[in-house]
């Protein structure tokens, strides 16, 4: 009897083992789907960046590196010589600065908020998380529109400033760089708060107690204990704001009014009215490279430090 049971058990274990190996195939459909419709388009675009632009959009299958050359230079119409034309470079630098400012201000606002949330009693914490999560998932276009309503010439902000007598005629806020940065801030603030919160939520407050026992001030405890331990969360939050802010498309489209461009709009333009797909592809890949550098920085900074806390 005992032997039969162990035999049946062996069969069950063997079947289970086989099942555990076979389960891997369940990943295949999702991986194939993304490879075909997500990875292939990226590879195709990389190829496009080395082709010649067709006159009405699309490409001619002929190799050239012109798209990358035109990123920095412009061909003279008359003698065909190349001249340095930093227009695109300036838009990239602008976007980079906008993304940096956005990240810095989000961190400044987001860290105290996340810390405050993490120090509430558990029942209250859930409500705070829900309140931050709702804008995180809300329609970006609609939220950008909401900002537009407020900062327009006839919007509430100008109305309010005139009413309290600070200004006597509306100041132009919409379609300026200020509007774009404000919009980016508003869009991506929840992206900073949530990762910061999840790293601060696990924080062991006995360390703060220890700090006070050693006569540290509140500020010293904050800078020397809390912030260094929250570093992985801070880096994650900064990346989650920086990457989408760098490639932002909707925000400058609506709040920049088509004149104050960022990288995202520049790329979209080459595929639309610009009718220069190879140039657009090259621009997209230069953006992609910037994102990869940021991700590399993240991986290098977190992987080495993971065991630090234990």
């Amino acid at each position: 009897m005992a032997k039969a049971l162990s035999k049946a058990e062996q069969v069950a274990r063997a079947m289970e083992g086989q099942q555990m190996t076979r389960n891997r195939w369940l990943s295949l459909p999702a991986v194939l789907f993304i490879t075909l419709f997500g990875v292939c388009p990226l590879i195709l675009m990389f190829i496009y960046s080395f082709l010649v632009a067709a006159p009405y959009g699309g490409v001619v299958w002929q190799f050239t590196t012109k798209a990358y050359v035109y990123f920095l230079f412009q061909e003279d119409i008359f003698d065909g010589t190349l001249q340095f034309a930093p227009d695109f470079l300036i838009i990239y630098l602008r976007s980079f600065i906008f993304a940096l400012i956005t990240t810095a201000v989000c961190l400044l606002l987001g860290f105290p908020t996340a810390y405050f949330m993490a120090t509430r009693p558990p029942a209250q914490r859930n409500w705070w998380v829900l309140l931050i999560t709702i804008p995180f998932w809300s329609n970006l276009l609609v939220r950008t529109l909401a900002i537009m309503f407020i900062i327009r010439d006839q919007g509430l902000l100008n109305g309010f400033l005139i009413w309290i007598g600070v200004i006597d005629k509306p100041i132009t806020l919409l379609y300026t760089d200020f509007a774009i940065v404000l919009g980016l801030l508003y869009s991506f603030l929840p992206f900073m708060v949530l990762p910061l919160y999840s790293s601060l939520e696990k924080f062991d407050f006995r360390l703060v107690e220890a700090g006070f026992d050693l006569y540290a001030t509140r500020r010293r405890v904050l800078w020397r204990i809390i912030i260094p331990i929250a570093r992985p969360g801070i880096i994650a939050g900064c990346l989650l704001v920086f990457i989408p802010a760098l490639g932002a498309y909707v925000t400058p489209l609506i709040l920049g009014g088509g004149k104050h461009l960022m990288i995202g709009d520049l790329i979209a333009q080459q595929f639309g009215s610009g009718r220069n797909w190879p140039l657009g592809s090259a621009q997209a890949f230069i953006l992609m490279a910037a994102v990869l550098v940021a991700l590399f920085f993240y991986v290098r900074n977190t992987s080495g430090k993971v065991h630090h806390g234990h």
């Binding site: 891997r24 999702a30 388009p41 675009m45 490639g247 997209a284 992609m288 991700l295």
Partner: peptide, 26 residues
């Protein structure tokens, strides 16, 4: 398995505008 995990999460790492123009080209 690691590569598959990366492939599945790829759409989160690529800026949306790049996904958009790449898909358009495709």
């Amino acid at each position: 398995m690691g590569t598959s995990f990366m492939v599945i999460n790829l759409p989160l790492m690529v800026p949306e505008i790049i996904t958009a123009v790449a898909t358009l080209s495709f």
